[in-house]
Design a protein around this nucleic acid. Structure first.
Lengths: 160, 160
DNA sequence: TATTGTTATACTCTATAACTATA
DNA sequence: TATAGTTATAGAGTATAACAATA
């Protein structure tokens, strides 16, 4: 079953799952987090696929387009990826001319990953695509609720 | 780098990532969702590993322990797993005597997955382990905020 | 000595298609 | 004709260790 079929099928048959989600388990934060994230990933990847990007590669590109671009090590920590996975992601984006590896002036071991002009252009389009997809996913949330969700998630995502 | 080392390292060096998460991208709901879920998964799997469970297998076990246990198809839809993955998960739990496949009285094609007594006992212990881990992860949230988070996540996880 | 990036490898998870038995 | 479960297989994602260059 393809992911698309799965999503459609799950939507169509969602009514029949009401009894499962009322069984106590369906209110588990970790479970809701997993399910919400799975939906978000599916929708995000679908929205980015026309640009040849996925959520992962878009995240790297977006951070590389930041005024203060990250080293590979910082990408690894921030995105919770193993350093060896960052190598593969950056290799791919670099081979497509979207990012460059530049020597870190303050540490010759480190590479700063910085978006090219083409990369910035694609990042802008990717941002529009993901924001549109996100709006669809959060359509029932008011602005205040959206802000509240960001605050609560941030406190879990970045335990201080 | 092992997952444990990664978590420790990420905690220690989190301060140095402040500038990344203030770059606009760090407030993305989809990104926060991914990061919060990754943390939740890591903590949950760690808490369950002593019981020989992971978040995935615990979820199946918990649903099988429900008074109205699910069919494999329902597990597939609810957990957003391909039916073939459910086969493997149930095979594993069944080989350990934690769940049984029972014929669905209303549909001879379907299997109802129901927890054994041993499965229920392990599920109880798993619930304690995950709840404890979850409390740690959400330590800074008040009860009202926790309830609010559940409500908001549920509206994203189950688009009605 | 410790850290950054890299390579290689094994492992887990996910996606896809084909099959069977029932509906 | 469609659905539930199963099997097999390929692909994507992840974990682990070892290495060269640099701190």
């Amino acid at each position: 079953m393809s992911m698309f079929e799965h999503v459609m099928f799950a939507t169509i048959t969602l009514m029949s799952l009401d009894r499962l989600r009322t069984g106590g388990f369906g209110d588990d934060v970790s479970f809701l987090l997993a399910r919400a994230n799975a939906l978000s990933l599916t929708v995000g990847n679908a929205a980015l696929s026309a640009l040849g990007l996925k959520v992962r590669s878009y995240a790297v590109l977006a951070l590389a387009a930041d005024p203060a671009p990250p080293t590979q090590r910082e990408l690894s920590e921030f995105l919770r990826l193993d350093p060896s996975q960052v190598v593969a992601l950056v290799d791919d984006l670099q081979s497509r001319g979207l990012v460059e590896r530049r020597p870190d002036p303050t540490d010759r071991r480190a590479n700063v990953v910085v978006a090219t002009d083409a990369g910035r252009e694609l990042q802008t389009r990717g941002q529009a695509a993901t924001q549109s997809a996100e709006r669809e996913l959060h359509a029932t949330l008011t602005d205040a609720e959206h802000a509240s969700l960001v605050d609560l998630l941030r406190r879990i995502a970045y335990p201080d």
